[in-house]
Design a protein around this nucleic acid. Sequence first.
RNA 1: GGUCUCGUGGUGAAGUUGGAGUUCACGCCGGCCUGUCAAGCCGGAGGUCGCGGGUUCGAGUCCCGUCGGGACCGCCA
Length: 576
Amino acid sequence: MRSHMCGDLRPSEISQTVSVCGWVAKRREHGDRLAFVDLRDHTGIIQCVIDNDVDVRSEYVVRITGVVRSRPQGTINSNIATGEVEIGDCVVEVLRSAEAPPFPVDARADDVDENVRLQYRYIDIRRERMQRNLRTRAKVNSAVRASMERQGFVEVETPMLVPSTPEGAREFLVPSRKEPGSFYALPQSPQLFKQLLMVAGIDRYYQIARCLRDEDLRADRQYEFMQLDAEMSFVNQDDVLEAIGEAVVCAAEAVTGVRPDPIERITWRQAMERFGVDKPDLRFGMELTELTSVFAGTEFKAFAGASSIKGIRVEAKAEEFGRNKLDALTDRAKKIGAKGLVWMKVAADGTLESPVVKFLSAAEQSAVITALQGAPGDLLLIVADEWEMTCEVLGQLRNDLGRPPVHQGPYRYVWVTEFPLFVGINKETGQPKPGHHPFCQPHPDDLHMFESDPMSVRSMAYDLVLNGWELGSGSIRIHEPDMQRRVFTALGISEEEANRKFGFFLKPFTYGAPPHGGFAFGLDRLVAILAGEDNIREVIAFPKTQSGQDPMTNAPTRAEPKQLEELGIRVLPPKA
RNA sequence: GGUCUCGUGGUGAAGUUGGAGUUCACGCCGGCCUGUCAAGCCGGAGGUCGCGGGUUCGAGUCCCGUCGGGACCGCCA
């Protein structure tokens, strides 16, 4: 039907007869004998000059055949790529008329209520921004696949109907018709299957896998999302980071044209010390500064006896933060869990202004300024608490006060390694909770304190972080029954319980499991950042809203009584 | 489950101390127009101010509830 794409026409095509197809982006009439029609396809816009009376309106689908010619002098439009040429002597075929669209099919729709855009997603996607985003996504998928293939990974598809597993995120359940009362779950990840593929000798597996989690939605979370999921046999941690890092770097290069530097690494401990979070945003400074020794002998009650004191310097913000804003910061700190927040302002003469300054010795005051490199006009924020709380509170404040939008360059990738094996205590059982999952290999250097001090044991788990967003995580897995038993014991899981919950997973490991490890990272998040979006809905063709609905299809919908009966399901009346 | 925030013709906004569905831009429909380009000029249609209740002589505006969108917290091993 067509010989060229709209956006491809250039002076090199002049005097050629061409046919283009697309949607009418704009019509400008100048009487019966002259009209300009801007025709749009996914490549761009070309101006067609119509010299007879043709009724074409916005979003009509048309085929236009005519001759490419250069535009008359003074009428070149430098705003579009095809602006030096136009199509003349046009024959217009209306392939389909159209209703007027509910919103402009161009950048103006960026300001339209997102719900309306989602309701008419098929029109929204005609826009250049959405076309670009979806094509960026395809580039990332393609580059990731190519990279994984080059590295000898084999794509294996794993089932969508899987057994429900008790740990982890809430699952979507699918009722079984053959066995009423029994349910499949939709996979939160192919975790179990990919490890079994290692037992099965696949050696290097990957999949661009759809994962589902029935947890509340956010800017960076949808019910369904795509992950690059991978697992490798006979490898150590470096091998995994190397392989996954290569795929990520290739994906970034495919989109930006620039190959990022090798991804740097930081341990979890360092990340907490310096940035106060386990997904540090390396694009800006304001790092946490250690002050515990500065106040080692202080008289100030709030600091005396605190095991960890740290501060951050908010550059040149002293003036901006009046009483109200400082109170709001203090509230924020308390909400996170701090007992309080100490603020100080560095005055023009280099002295400190703060409600607590009278409790601090002159030596302490000057030491604080030196440690934090305070300059006149700076705001200093200090927290004293247990180490983890101090880090966490200041890390949050650092992000609140300094973090740019996620998509704003430069791209700073970082591996965070050596996560703690256990995190927190299960309130019901009093036992530690797994930091990653219960099949994660403890750090070999920490095995001597596994029983005596389990909370200090590091793991062979790692995260990949980009601009403060967690892209994904992985670990070296346990492949020895003895080690697995020790971990279950530490978690308070009995052998009976372990067999009941994880039996179908553990048994295969007795038949010869190779040492293995893997990783999974969220493609939606990576694509969003590379596409310059701060919301993954913008890179998903048909996303759900925050309440989990699809304004276009109206999903979820009520089931027919007949369907429910067949499945042996009765729906309870809504709670009063 | 919680905090905050938004909801006014198809779209985006304005709407003052509570005083007539008022206004602006875009879009739409009709007319004029031979070089425009998110064209220009003239005219027109189009709204249950999300929904329900309350206060009031009178509510887009104030109060209560509810529904929907969004951001965040919880949650996401």
